[in-house]
Amino acid sequence: MMADVQAMYGLWLREITQFLRSWSRIVGWLITPLLILGFLAFGFRGVALPGLPEGIDYVQYLVPGMAGFTILFSASFTGLGILSDREVGFLKEILVAPVSRRAIVLGWTAGGATTAVIQSTLIILLSIPLGFRLKRVWMFPLAVLVLLLLAITFIGFGLALASQFRDSQGFGLLINFTIFPLFFLSGALYPIENLPGPLQYLALLNPLTYGIDALRGVLIGTSAYSLLLDVSALLVAATTMVMIAGILFERIEVV
């Protein structure tokens, strides 16, 4: 057990080391969400979007959504990282160690979640010059907790998917087709009530919906559901996803 904790720490540390070592990658990860945020915020400035809460302009509404998007985007890189480890052979070094597969999955998740939370926090802070106002600064730690739960959920999802691929190409393609539906069916850009009926139900199955709603509640003081409901939904989603990833990785043969 102690050995497993040490192994998890080692894998977490590797993720952080890589993250801090490649500034170009950090900038690359931040640019996509920042561009989307910047253009949408200016392009739709002053637009009267139906269903937007009273007294909330579009930038305020959008920033929590983009923080959620950043989590999605960054979590997909964890899955990609595992597959590139597989391609360069490093995965064998990890899997031949006397560590349980569960501990390995938890170590990867911890490392990926840490970097994802750092990035999405940066997005929130960088949006302040774009006109975003933090209503309740003292609630910010709660926002970080929500981001963490979101990150764990989608990293679990990404790892579960990655376990089914042998190389990063097929996985990359699938991720492209997954990120945007998840994004559009989450209320990140508009209230989900604006979607046609059946799509609304899909959005209600999407953990990102609850994460973004919770972020709005915490950051700008307005949300569709109670914080308790949002956080409970995220807890269930995060636990389920990591368990599925663990079970799938238990079974893979690496050679």
Partner: peptide, 15 residues
Amino acid sequence: NIGVVFQEPALDDQL
């Protein structure tokens, strides 16, 4: 109780 050196390199070259 074993050490393994695989046929193909198994290194993370960013470390």
